[in-house]
Write a protein that binds this DNA or RNA. Sequence first.
DNA 1: CTGTTAGCGCTTTCAC
DNA 2: GTGAAAGCGCTAACAG
Lengths: 315, 315
Amino acid sequence: MTVSRVINNKGEISETTRKRVQETIDQLGYRPSSIARGLVTDRTGTVGLVVIDNANPFFSEVARGVEDVAYAEGYNVFLCNTEEDIAREIAVLQSLEEKRVDGVILCSSRLDDDDLKAALRHYSAVVLVNRTAPVEQFGTIVLDDEKGAQIATEHLIQSGHRAIGFLAGPRRSRSGQMRVKGYRTTLEACGLTYNAEWVRQCLPVVESGQEIAQALLNDHPELTAMICHNDLTAVGALQACTDAGRRVPDDVAVVGFDNIPLAAWVTPPLTTCDFPKYQLGSQAMQMLLARINDCSQGCENIVVQPELIVRASAP
Amino acid sequence: MTVSRVINNKGEISETTRKRVQETIDQLGYRPSSIARGLVTDRTGTVGLVVIDNANPFFSEVARGVEDVAYAEGYNVFLCNTEEDIAREIAVLQSLEEKRVDGVILCSSRLDDDDLKAALRHYSAVVLVNRTAPVEQFGTIVLDDEKGAQIATEHLIQSGHRAIGFLAGPRRSRSGQMRVKGYRTTLEACGLTYNAEWVRQCLPVVESGQEIAQALLNDHPELTAMICHNDLTAVGALQACTDAGRRVPDDVAVVGFDNIPLAAWVTPPLTTCDFPKYQLGSQAMQMLLARINDCSQGCENIVVQPELIVRASAP
DNA sequence: CTGTTAGCGCTTTCAC
DNA sequence: GTGAAAGCGCTAACAG
């Protein structure tokens, strides 16, 4: 008991015994069991972070943001990948629940509303990133993807482009849908017509971007610009242009999304729609902590604004 | 008790009660508390993974390898970053210990032998990545960095280069030391002299690579090739060459290390020394599991071999 | 085949 | 200021 008081710095203790206890602790290298403590306090000092793929630079930066504030606040974070696999997403959420995490940050969930509600029904603290909430008890942080697509599209139109293709991302992804939507409404707002043939579905990886961009350019040589679902697909598009003998940006301008580090180092450097990935993570963790510490408080719904980074691929 | 038996599929149970119990479990959405279980079994089903920086593509891929096998085996992994900060490294190791992880994978530790021993003295299962072990109870997986530097250097020499610069990595890092060593011994083995002025210390990030490469090329225009501590610094070197009006590979050949995805997409694509990052992680996790399940078994010390990926930056 | 007892290492509560 | 008792949710060992 006295040891407990020393460790937690709680209650009155004489300076002499405190010292004596502390010395013994140091000598033995004693570490209090956070799991035994958790059993009684119902707090584990752990949170779960679920992402699609930690090897994707977007998520690995988000994870850094999460872990940095977790570390500062004395929390440890479980990192789980889902690979866009629904069964795996459900499984990791369950395993995290069994570990009695104090809260969960779930990025880009691919579950539908019902499955999501079911998977999270026992959690009291949840922050959803890049996904709107099916119930109001969840905090959310979403990117303003529609706005991002808008400023990207406007930028190209202002540069004189009239035939702008679009490499669209996964249908199940909120970002995927919203970026196409922003593209379409902006075109129409500017008096241009939306042409479904200029839009192609594409996996969010370089290889797919290259393949689909190649096909798109081949079928529609009239295109003078391409907006790509993310920077990886945009890099693929750059390759496709090179392969097809089309110069970037002179023949075809290319715009990406995310502003991952890679974007600045390819040739030509990518014009891209930046989202603050690290801040996304750190904000999510802060929001989660707020909920963990006071689960009565209303949940925030933050919308993060994009910024167009203009580089040589679409000046 | 009967519930426990159903959940763990242990002992004899009549089919009827098993069903009845299972139904109630499903209905209630009951999840056994892994932490209460841990208190009695002394197994938490968690492991710690400590890296320098998860936003570095090298580590984020290692982490994927670790997490994938952890997931397959029913483990969850705590991800911690150290930022090369010794105090933080010690702190996370301690917090992981308090969480009673079943084992720890420690990548690129910056602690000296004594601190490392102290920080890990209560752990029974440890795998060190990219670091030799101060005590034989630790498993290790190290890259054969010296060999990597050797094949990179030989490749350049065979291509006719005689004046080869070197952007060296952090002094505290095993890789940093070994890569320089391999470069030096290979030069000498080939009858060339090692010139300390051609070697410059450099941080393992693009900006530093660019800055140091620029200075090096400026001071030593006689250099016709550069080996860089990793791909990030190599990308910086490419920039420096472009800025200085030196064409790659015609005027200066550039070689990197790691073969991160970026390496393939820059212009020109990087010749680089590949290490199997994902496998590094998955092997480390397998090794750790072996030790967790039988801590009596002798510890392996694996050396991972590099492979030179020849691309346009140094054909 | 099922239930009872005890204890994992801590904190909460209350007694001294 | 310090200690004793009880209990968190589970499983190991044993009893019925």
